[in-house]
């Protein structure tokens, strides 16, 4: 390649007739450029580019972990709140039920008492009424005897023409009227 050092040759060094990839004349030059290029790449990657990517990934990792922790915390808080709410609800329900039961019992007891008082009152009144009826009947029966005696006296007087003694008539009426009715 020594002879092709003239100005910007676009012409490959065909003079050698070598298979280019095995042309050892170019090795030194290629190695030098490779060392420069790859060295620069290595330095750029290891000192600048890769730490930046690593930092981004790290940050995302941390952020995601943080977010997950936050979410877990919020969830546990929510769970606690739900639990508290449910407990309060259950308490209130129980209380309401207790109050309702109490009220119902009280009302039932009151109603019962009133009913019983009413019944007792009614019993008394009924007994009174029965007694009045019995009294009335007895009185009426007594009246019936008097009327019967008077009637019998009148009838006998009219039929016989003479007035029987009151005792006779009374005895006769007493015989005619069944004993049960007289009482």
């Amino acid at each position: 390649m020594a002879q092709t050092t003239t100005a910007s040759t676009e012409h490959p060094a065909e003079a050698h007739g070598n298979f280019p990839p095995f042309d050892s004349h170019s090795f030194g030059n290629q190695l030098l450029w490779l060392a420069l290029a790859f060295g620069a790449l290595y330095v750029l990657m290891s000192k600048v580019a890769l730490p930046r990517v690593a930092a981004i990934l790290e940050e995302r990792h941390n952020r995601v972990a943080d977010d997950l922790a936050q979410a877990a915390k919020l969830k546990s808080e929510t769970d606690a709140a739900i639990e508290a709410y449910e407990k309060a609800l259950a308490d209130a329900k129980a209380k309401a039920q207790a109050i309702a039961g109490e009220t119902r019992d009280k009302l039932a007891a009151e109603t019962d008492a009133r009913r019983r008082a009413l019944e007792a009152d009614l019993h008394v009144k009924l007994a009174e009424a029965e007694r009045q009826i019995v009294d009335g009947k007895t009185k009426a029966m007594g009246n019936v005897r008097g009327i019967a005696v008077d009637t019998a006296l009148a009838i006998v007087e009219r039929l016989v023409g003479k007035t029987p003694s009151a005792d006779e008539v009374d005895a006769a009426v007493g015989r005619a009227l069944p004993a049960s009715q007289v009482q």
């Binding site: 390649m1 030098l32 450029w33 580019a49």
Partner: peptide
């Protein structure tokens, strides 16, 4: 050894530049 820019060197430099710019 003569040190001369070849299209191979340009490709290598270009590759390094491309990788670095993308990164």
């Amino acid at each position: 050894t003569e040190v001369v820019l070849t299209q191979s060197s340009l490709y290598m430099i270009g590759a390094v530049a491309l990788i670095t710019i993308v990164m």
